[in-house]
Design a protein around this nucleic acid. Structure first.
Lengths: 342, 342
DNA sequence: GTGAAAGCGCTAACAC
DNA sequence: GTGTTAGCGCTTTCAC
């Protein structure tokens, strides 16, 4: 087996030409540099024969480009992010880019460490779902001209490329759906992070509830409740103390999952008695009994827009436009929010 | 903002020494190379002051090491793989390695393309869940000495590092559990790939069923049934034609999910009437009603063993041991396989 | 039309 | 103890 790696020098030597000539041919500049047809073809033939593959590390060192994009999410094990990652992966590979995924746990230190790490590796661009305390670092990246797209949440004081969904509207619509199905005591369960996506979901909920002359009931679980145990306890207390609620709106898929567990364990009757709605649509919600109404984010569109934006930033002659793409969500109505009569 | 990237040369110049000296100090070889304490400290201080970060690309070009490990799974959107990926990511980062995830869709062409791609990028090692037709390529990697660990399935004719679970035993135990709970007509739903993990699960099932004097009923869905629609149709037909079954054993989590969908749509009574068991434990199974009995693979252990093996291969002085780690699974008994009386 | 050579940033053998 | 220098594989300017 000839496992040997050929270099451009080997090719040059074998064909009695210089490395320059070979390089020009390889990079499709034969015409432009007026390399003769004969030489061009000879080299091309040789290259395919030995299955020459350029050393990308050397290429990167020379050009400063790595063809690697970092996609930093909260947690790659969260189905929402995993599904998104999958689509992004496919688009990127097709365009000749590789994707490095990493999870920041919505933790600032980890985020900063990862960003620095990848800057040293000279990755070409960052798609980031930022934790709340890294505004300064993001600002630095922007002013350094690093190709960067934020997703899911953003920093209102920063001007940069981002793809988001209309959380306020989505949340308003979801809440209205409950209201129009006769739910009158709607609880909202979220986390206490001050990130745009969460604040918008909260605001959408509040607007709908208050407009309808109803009372809001809000639980914002402290993010520092790290263990799932803590979260469960908080949910248990809230649900126990708010038996008057006739519907519960979970602001994320994992809160909904935890909520369903807590209900199953402590208040089994709630699952059928109360309206349930969740942000993010995952397999579970389609299969659960009752099936769970959910706000579906357009994964394909999100991935496409993210990569469009990124690829645009990566183009040599990219104009320095700053774009904000706002996508619409869809409310998938299921059994858990059926019309209520009473 | 001094966004400038300092190079080793800058440091040398600023301190009136040569790059060698700087390099030695940076790489902790000051003592070994007998650099004076004064110089060492001066350089060290300067380095921290300017926050020097070595250019990893140049380092890679020089050393041939990239500190990148590829983790190739079937589909990163599958929760089993996503969860595993998450743990591997954490371990790798801690050890100074980055992980490139990629999905091969259990497709040979895609697998080969990805492997070649990453070989050109000179990644340090591969953790691969191989599709069935890439035995030759895997053999090549092995004989080239590329650090490689297979997981989940393997090629019996190849000697190489691998981490697997005892699928046969797991499957036997799962089937026995059904039998001892009085199920007498157990159907087995799998795919038609000839991969070890699937064959072992099938064999474990068969052994248990035949030992008990029962009849086997097996559906092996052709892998070429790409669309979920095709799979559903096959399942629908099988379930419809085999109404006598009193239990169904799904050989993977996604088959179980599809199965649950089909049942919900076409045979809603099956869900409570028939015993249901699945390979791989995912959130859904804990939450479903009834909760679904599942074979749980030890994710933490798997990830740890995979990375142990990999890190061992990556060590300079690694002995060329070939290890096969076989891990045990655990049957999580839930409502879907409760004892049956009839 | 083609080649020589500089240089990307780093490591390490060798020289002094 | 410290410096000089070759070279990893590639791109590209400049020279002929």
């Amino acid at each position: 087996m000839k496992k040997q790696h050929y270099s451009i020098k080997d090719i040059a030597k074998a064909n009695g030409v210089s490395v320059t000539t070979v390089s020009f041919v390889i990079n499709g500049k034969a015409k432009e540099k007026k390399i003769s047809k004969a030489v061009t073809e000879k080299i091309l033939k040789y290259i395919t024969k030995i299955k020459y593959k350029p050393n990308q590390i050397a290429q990167s060192l020379r050009t400063g480009k790595t063809n690697i994009i970092v996609f930093m999410v909260e947690d790659i094990a969260n189905p929402f992010f995993a599904n998104l990652a999958r689509i992004i992966e496919d688009i990127a590979y097709e365009k000749g880019y590789r994707v490095l995924f990493c999870s920041n746990d919505n933790n600032d230190d980890k985020s900063l460490e990862l960003i620095n790490l990848f800057k040293d590796r000279a990755v070409d661009g960052f798609i980031i779902i930022p934790s709340s305390g890294i505004e300064k670092k993001i600002g630095e990246l922007i002013s350094e001209g690093v190709p960067l797209v934020l997703f899911d949440r953003y920093f209102p004081n920063l001007e940069n490329n981002k793809v988001i969904v209309d959380n306020k509207k989505a949340s308003y619509t979801a809440t209205q759906h409950l209201i129009s199905n006769n739910y009158k005591n709607i609880g909202f369960i979220s986390t206490d992070v001050d990130q745009t996506q969460m604040l918008d979901r909260l605001e959408g909920y509040k607007n709908a509830v208050l407009e309808a002359g109803l009372t809001d009931s809000i639980l914002r679980i402290p993010l520092r409740c790290i263990g799932i145990g803590d979260k469960k306890k908080q949910l248990e207390t809230f649900l126990g103390e708010n038996a008057q609620l006739d519907a519960i709106y979970f602001a994320t898929n994992y809160l909904a999952i935890t909520g369903l567990i807590v209900m199953k364990e402590n208040f089994p009757s709630y699952i059928t008695e109360k309206g349930i709605i969740a942000f993010d649509d995952i397999d579970l919600f389609k299969l659960y009994s009752p099936t769970i109404t959910a706000v579906q984010q357009p994964l394909e569109q999100i991935a496409t827009k993210l990569m469009d934006t990124m690829l645009n930033l990566l183009k040599e002659d990219s104009e320095n436009l700053v774009s904000t793409v706002v996508l619409e969500t869809e409310l998938i109505e299921r059994e858990s929010t059926q019309k209520r009569f009473k």
